[in-house]
Design a protein around this nucleic acid. Structure first.
Lengths: 359, 359
DNA sequence: CTACTTCCGGAAAGCGCTTGCCAACTGAAA
DNA sequence: TTTCAGTTGGCAAGCGCTTTCCGGAAGTAG
């Protein structure tokens, strides 16, 4: 990597590196017109590209935003990533990507790596977990984040604060009203459904999943329905599929029984799981919503063309990414910025065909 | 950002920075056991994190891989990104993400930004374009890439070489047999379909799209069918949707005519477009495959649960990302690496229900 | 015990850029 | 003309790390 350097440009233009720096890489002081022109020409003719590492070192700031996701190929994260990317562009920064699979240990490593690169800010998009086996990992992650913040870094977390993090300066949480929205979803569903409800949740301790489960139960209770049974499974399509198989067996069994059991309404705590469950039911010859209703959460864009259209809760994922990123950026003390992050995000219950009562 | 520095660690351990560097950040020379231990302890107690920028400056290499995509929320790119990410992890590097929307001008900027950050390699995943209005952009992009390669950078392009790029050193192309596969798809479809074919393609000049269109026509020709009409539209869902509306109107018109026109088989040059087209047909009350058959390309994972299951061509997107990234990495001169990149990628025609003849 | 090789830490010179400070120069006010 | 403020370019000191080179210590052989 032997690109031309500022010094070379300066020499060619017959000025000092200081002057060249001032004209090329934005400084408060603007050198005289003619000199500036000479420098610019020299830079052009050499194809000069400033060395961002050196700049970063000198200015101690890197123009980098670190983004942590579980899996970039998951459309949920991909959508958030798009928002982050956009906000990064507004701030004229670049996005560093880390995918962790969701473990706090990997997340801690990612944070350390970002810190090493002196990323100006970090956005953490994956769900927090408070499972026992993650406790140590969480502690370490929290410590790493605290240190990062203490050194002046900005952190935004989507959904829940990192368990155990104590930093206040530069630590932002973008709240997502999962519980509230799940409650609304349950109300909405309860209105048009008299059968039983089953929840297909992620592993216990996954905060996002837990919130949604809890909210859903609350909603049912308020509607005067009995609480739903909760199946725990993986927080992804294949988890949904497994649960779906299980439920399919149950539905078939019930069907062959004496009393025609009322239909089941399945709430999978995210869209991808819901699609998995739907696929499983279908593979067992069941039809939606005829034999069972199903609802998800997130309203993933790519899945909107799925048929029967999936009832779900629309979450403005791109906005979430954007808002999280903005909250870490310069000017994050303005009213709007504060407001946007504090008010959190609003979603919208969206009932579609997959939960229609009339089959 | 005032993290502790190597010098501080060295001082605390009572050694010189040189020694500290040697023990902490892998060097050929390994200092004595006891000293190493002292240094490590000092580093630990200070919570030392090496400054990657400084390291990069000194070593002139950054441990960064730049990835250029059109849109990270597009599942096609997201899948490739996952592969890139994995390969990056193998190489213990981080991924810098740039989304460009597909224009060569933005791509050029991204390359420049990566060059400025001294990224060790760059992976370009978006389709190349040879449209007239992109000519200048392409030229500049090519120039930027050439310069980057000349300075020792490694570039991998997925699909097609960048139009006009002349660099040979460090310039890799991961070939994707779009044309060949589209031909096979046409053959496969022609076997079970006697109606007409229509191709829904992206804008003319988009190389990936053009290849697929061309291959498809070849396949039809070899099967003794007359060439398909080609509709040009956007290379995304909404383009597919628009084309779908148009075709729906046509199908309905034909249906009300005297002679019952044979059914149409629609080939959309990528899955997302196919889904869009399918949605449009459906919204017009048409059913697939009863009223029209439809096929896509890519076999996007998230879309596999779509019903009717979409006939398509399976592309190992994750592998593509991985192979592209590996081809730019260290040891890319080994046989396998060379082979993998040179042989390119293989895909597989996958016929599913969306093109079944019996409706 | 001397001569020669090995090994190991440390000093110091960068890597490419920014920026505080200084000196020189400008123009205006006195 | 002198004085003073206001500019403007350049010098040089870093930013935090790597790496070459060097001298001293230790090990081996003669």
């Amino acid at each position: 990597m032997a690109a031309s350097t500022l010094t070379e440009v300066a020499r060619l233009a017959g000025v000092s590196p200081a002057t060249a720096s001032r004209v090329l890489n934005g400084s408060a002081r603007k050198p005289g017109k003619d000199i500036a022109e000479r420098v610019r020409q020299a830079a052009d003719s050499l194809g000069y590209i400033p060395n961002a590492q050196a700049q970063g070192l000198a200015k101690s700031s890197s123009g980098l935003i670190g983004l942590i996701v579980h899996d970039i190929a998951d459309p949920y994260f991909a959508a958030i990533a798009r928002g982050v990317q956009e906000a990064a562009r507004e701030q004229r920064k670049m996005v560093l990507l880390a995918t962790t699979g969701g473990g706090p240990a990997e997340e801690k490593e990612a944070v350390a790596a970002f810190a090493a690169r002196r990323a100006d800010s970090i956005v953490i998009a994956g769900s927090r977990s408070c499972r026992d086996e993650d406790r140590d990992g969480n502690t370490e992650l929290a410590a790493e984040l605290d240190r990062y913040c203490r050194n002046g870094g900005q952190v935004a977390v989507v959904g829940h604060p990192v368990v155990g993090a104590t930093a206040t300066e530069g630590y932002h949480v973008v709240k997502v009203p999962n519980q509230e929205l799940a409650r609304q979803l349950a109300s909405g569903l309860a209105e048009g459904w008299d059968g039983d409800f089953v929840v297909v949740g992620g592993p216990e301790g996954l905060l996002t999943s837990d919130d949604r489960v809890r909210g859903f139960q609350e909603g049912l209770e308020r509607a005067g329905r009995r609480p739903a049974e909760v199946l725990r499974t993986g927080f992804n399509r294949s988890g949904g599929y497994d649960a779906g198989l299980q439920l399919a067996a149950r539905i078939k069994a019930a069907r062959s029984g004496e009393a025609p059991a009322p239909r089941l309404c399945i709430f999978a705590v995210n869209d991808v799981m819901a699609i998995g469950a739907a696929a499983a039911l279908r593979s067992e010859g069941l039809r939606i919503p005829r034999d069972a209703a199903i609802a998800g959460f997130d309203d993933i864009e790519t899945l909107r063309d799925f048929r029967p259209a999936l009832s779900t809760v629309r979450l403005p994922l791109e906005d979430i990414g954007r808002i999280a990123t903005r909250s870490t950026g310069p000017g994050n003390h303005t009213e709007e910025a504060q407001g946007a992050a504090a008010d959190g995000i609003t979603g919208e219950v969206t009932l579609r065909r997959s939960t229609e009562a009339a089959a």
